[in-house]
């Protein structure tokens, strides 16, 4: 049971709303000590993993581009663009983006991402479709932004394994090979399709409901102003 001490630290620490970085340090040290490592060994493990995983933060390079475009009205333009489109709702924009993300990752293209698509384009478009020129309170903005960020994750997760050379499939193959089962990549890719379709249908329901909720909200807002 002592082996689970790190997990316990994470659950309690995040539950107490402590800073996640602090929680991770304490959890890492307690887990490492429980696993029989010395303090310097633990520091080495943290350093090695941190350096190996620098690729996760390469998106930093996109920030000057996105930032400068925002200075010149990128978000405002995305809002304007959507307001001119008839029938464009926040939910439909996000669902369409999810489909685009699923379809492109199913053929092995990693087109997409929160810094390159959601922040500069998809989220402002969705916000514009809801706001229609009005100011939105932060709580409503948060709801729209969370749904927009989720569209990226749904499309990415429930599309990528359809690609026959996906990293995830190769990992499955590796684990199964090691256990003495030879598995076929094409079969696996094929059986990722039902989940992908189900995810899209479920998302379609959720984004439609989201549109209904936003509509109700804007009707209420208009009544209050009257």
């Amino acid at each position: 049971m002592i082996r689970l001490v790190g997990v316990l630290v994470v659950i309690v620490g995040l539950g107490l709303r402590l800073n996640p970085l602090l929680v991770v340090i304490v959890a890492g040290f307690s887990s490492g000590l429980a696993g029989g490592m010395g303090p310097y060994e633990i520091l080495e493990a943290i350093g090695t993993a941190f350096v190996t995983n620098r690729y996760m933060s390469l998106f930093i390079l996109t920030l000057p581009v996105i930032g400068l475009l925002e200075r010149h009205g990128l978000r405002e333009q995305a809002e304007l663009f959507i307001m001119k489109l008839k029938g464009a709702t926040a939910g439909r924009i996000m669902l369409l983006y999810m489909l685009f993300r699923q379809a492109t990752s199913a053929v092995g293209l990693q087109l997409g991402g929160h810094p390159t698509f959601i922040r500069p384009i998809i989220s402002p478009m969705a916000e514009g479709a809801v706001a229609k020129g009005r100011e939105l309170p932060q709580s409503v903005l948060d709801q729209i932004r969370s749904m927009a960020a989720a569209a990226e994750n749904y499309g990415n997760f429930f599309g990528q394994l359809i690609f026959i050379a996906a990293g995830g499939l190769l990992l499955i193959k590796g684990v199964m090979d090691q256990a003495g089962y030879s598995v076929d990549l094409l079969t696996m890719a094929l059986y990722a399709v039902p989940t992908a379709v189900a995810a899209f249908l479920l998302a379609a329901v959720r984004y439609t409901m989201f549109d209904a909720r936003m509509k109700k909200l804007s009707l209420k807002g208009e009544e209050e102003r009257r």
């Binding site: 991770v24 993993a49 995983n53």
Partner: peptide
């Protein structure tokens, strides 16, 4: 911004402690 890289280290330490097996 550094949380993702940091968590990768935690996964490694969890592994060392044998969390998965338990």
């Amino acid at each position: 911004v550094i949380l993702s890289q940091f968590l990768a280290a935690l996964g490694f330490l969890f592994d060392k402690a044998g969390v998965g097996g338990v």
